[in-house]
Write a protein that binds this DNA or RNA. Structure first.
Lengths: 141, 141
DNA sequence: TCGAACCCTCACATAGGTGTGAATGTCAAG
DNA sequence: CTTGACATTCACACCTATGTGAGGGTTCGA
């Protein structure tokens, strides 16, 4: 699989695939002519990378996370204390992100529900501004 | 509450508080001397903002999301079709992020568990590299 | 054999969030 | 009155992820 195909089937610009490689997130062998040759599993890996980047992780962190979880085998031995600490820290940060996103997502959903209920007043309700329950993002962090 | 206090109790550089204000994410009245005067609820709001930024949302999007969910009251009427579409789109993206983070977080947790189990071989297991179950990040997107 | 479509590397440009500092104003305490 | 802590605005600089294009090779079908 060459870069064009991978690009197309992951919706990722070639430029970025090369960039991810440069950052050590993605590995490709090379055909005799120098073209990158990607393995099937790269598709998922690229999607994973993009998802994590979207979610606010840096390439540096992603690089540290991916190799530990990359293949079918886990290299239990190859994990220094420091790596483990990083993973734990990052796992916790991910939890926080998940919480924050979940709360916000629920708040948005609640708001959208309210708006739609108001527009098609199937289950009637007063118009204009409604109070209570408060779709408040406040207590989130 | 002035900027210094808010900065300290949210762990956010003053610079950023001003930046958030400039981006329309945060509002402060001004004391007669021109100093910003923050309301208690700003603390939560700032934490919310930071959480969302951490999670990959841009200030532009956050600005669009916050006002709809900001106060105790919902302005059901003040939502254009376009705003609603944006909110729906953003809610979906948040869901995706949550899924991606959740999977990765679980994978990391699984990996860490395996490592710790290996280090303190309480429930014995062979050393070195273990196979199966695969703590594989692949199928994530 | 030519052109189109693909690949390569290199390199400069952009945008958003953040760091940092200059030049200045305000206020409380010595 | 001065000093020090805190505030203000303005502006340049940085990093990272990404866009974009130049200059040039490879492959393949017309």
């Amino acid at each position: 699989m060459r870069i064009g195909e991978l690009s197309e089937c992951t919706g990722t610009p070639r430029r970025l695939l090369r960039y991810y490689e440069e950052q050590g997130l993605l590995v490709a062998d090379r055909s005799p002519n120098g073209y990158r040759d990607y393995d099937e599993r790269c598709v998922d890996r690229v999607l994973q990378i993009r998802g994590l980047l979207e979610s606010g992780l840096s390439t540096r962190i992603i690089k540290q996370i991916l190799p530990c979880l990359g293949g079918r085998l886990i290299h239990v031995t190859g994990a220094s204390d420091e790596t483990i600490a990083t993973l734990e820290r990052e796992r916790d940060r991910m939890r926080q992100r998940i919480e924050c996103l979940t709360r916000s997502q629920e708040a948005i959903s609640g708001y959208l529900d309210a708006v739609l209920r108001h527009r098609r007043p199937a289950a009637g309700r007063a118009a204009g501004t409604i109070a209570e329950p408060s779709y408040d993002l406040a207590a989130t962090a």
